[in-house]
Simulated scan of single mutants.
Amino acid sequence: MDNEWVVIEIDMPGRWVELAGAVVAELGAGGTVVEERQLDTFVVPDEDLDPEKSYCLKVYFEEIANISSLKETIEQELAELPALLAEQFNVSEPKQVHMEDWAENWKQNFSTMRIGSRLVIHPSWEDYQTENGEVAIEIDPGMAFGTGTHGTTMLCLKTIADLLAADNPPSDMLDVGTGSGILALGAAALGCPKILANDIDPLACRVATENVVKNGYQDCIEISSQPLEELPGEYDLLVANILAEENIRLKNDFLEHLRPGGWLVLSGILREKESLVRQGFADLPLESYPTEFQDEWICLLYRRK
């Protein structure tokens, strides 16, 4: 569907927007908009959402084999959630939209933001002059996700910043599911000299490449669309900001790409799924560190023994 996406609208109370977003993400949604406020790859409600107010959650899909059954599938998945048994929500019929129409909506609520003490992320329509050791990344929201605004992205960036500021920082990094390339760009800006950013989505690779070139980090960031299991080499740092179940499915591939003493950062995980992921990684030779939280999301840090 070159340049064409499918959108479905779900009307529901603000308190359930995040839960519904996690459900549609697992169904393959490329992203969401709450009314006209854009959210990131994994859905989390804006702090201004009223739990009792009804909102329109717009859900976008890039490739759907059977569009006619999409509405029914979403309704069934939502109906199976115990929390929603007594709730009233409406799911619209799917319709097609242009990529550019959606991408323009991002500009309404994305502005310059700071991650940690040094990293600044800003869109192209806002100038930013760095000072006092700051480093800045220019990145615009679009169809490949990741601008730093989502809780999971913030958690990953903060963890990356802490590791790179410590003694013996990682000398290279593998970014699994890079999306817009934001985590790779953040690591490069903070001093990581060699980064491989991996994503099997061609659109994500194209957008990530554009962002890398725009920010001038093409000498230290390589973009790859190869499946993870086909990638060569081991790394000091591996970051995967993907869904909980995908983290578990890829755990052995993660280990194969992690040097002894290397750091593993996992996010894209709802709080309620922490034990699921912890149990999934329990049989690997990894030392675990305390969980970091933001909103309803968590970030797990491990180190290979």
Rank of each mutant, 00 (worst) to 15 (best):
S288R: 04
S180I: 14
K58F: 02
E138L: 06
F281Q: 07
N247I: 05
K305E: 08
E77L: 05
I67V: 08
L155Y: 03
E72D: 07
E210K: 10
G146R: 02
V34T: 01
L196I: 13
E296D: 09
N211E: 03
L57D: 04
D127L: 14
D2I: 15
L301V: 13
R118A: 07
A204H: 05
E36N: 10
I195R: 01
Y289F: 14
E35T: 09
T153Y: 14
R114V: 09
L57Q: 02
V120R: 00
V277M: 02
E62F: 03
R118Y: 11
G28M: 06
D201H: 09
S92V: 08
W5Q: 04
I160K: 11
C220T: 13
V239S: 14
D199G: 03
M113I: 10
L81W: 06
L190C: 02
E210R: 05
I182H: 05
F42G: 07
E52L: 15
I248R: 13
M113G: 10
L27K: 00
G142S: 11
W263M: 07
A83F: 05
R15C: 09
I298L: 11
E134T: 09
L27E: 02
E62M: 11
A22H: 06
V6L: 15
D40R: 02
N168H: 05
N132T: 07
G177I: 12
K251C: 13
D219P: 03
N66P: 05
G148N: 05
G14P: 01
E75S: 08
E36T: 11
L238C: 14
L78D: 01
P193K: 10
P170R: 02
L174P: 07
S275M: 14
R37C: 09
G14W: 02
V239I: 15
Y235T: 05
Y128P: 00
W125Q: 07
E36C: 08
P232Y: 08
E36H: 12
R118E: 07
P193E: 13
I248M: 06
A25E: 09
S224R: 07
L185H: 05
F42V: 12
D167Y: 06
E234V: 14
N198M: 03
H150Q: 03
V277T: 12
W297H: 01
D40S: 06
M143Y: 03
M12A: 15
G31R: 04
Y289W: 13
S92E: 06
D48G: 11
S171M: 12
L237T: 03
D48W: 00
K107S: 10
T152Q: 01
L49N: 07
S54L: 15
A208V: 08
G261L: 06
N211Y: 03
M99N: 08
E292T: 14
E287W: 13
E229L: 13
M143A: 10
V239C: 15
D11S: 06
T147Y: 08
E230L: 13
I298V: 12
F254T: 10
D167E: 14
L57G: 11
V265S: 01
E256V: 14
V6M: 11
T112L: 14
A65C: 10
V24E: 05
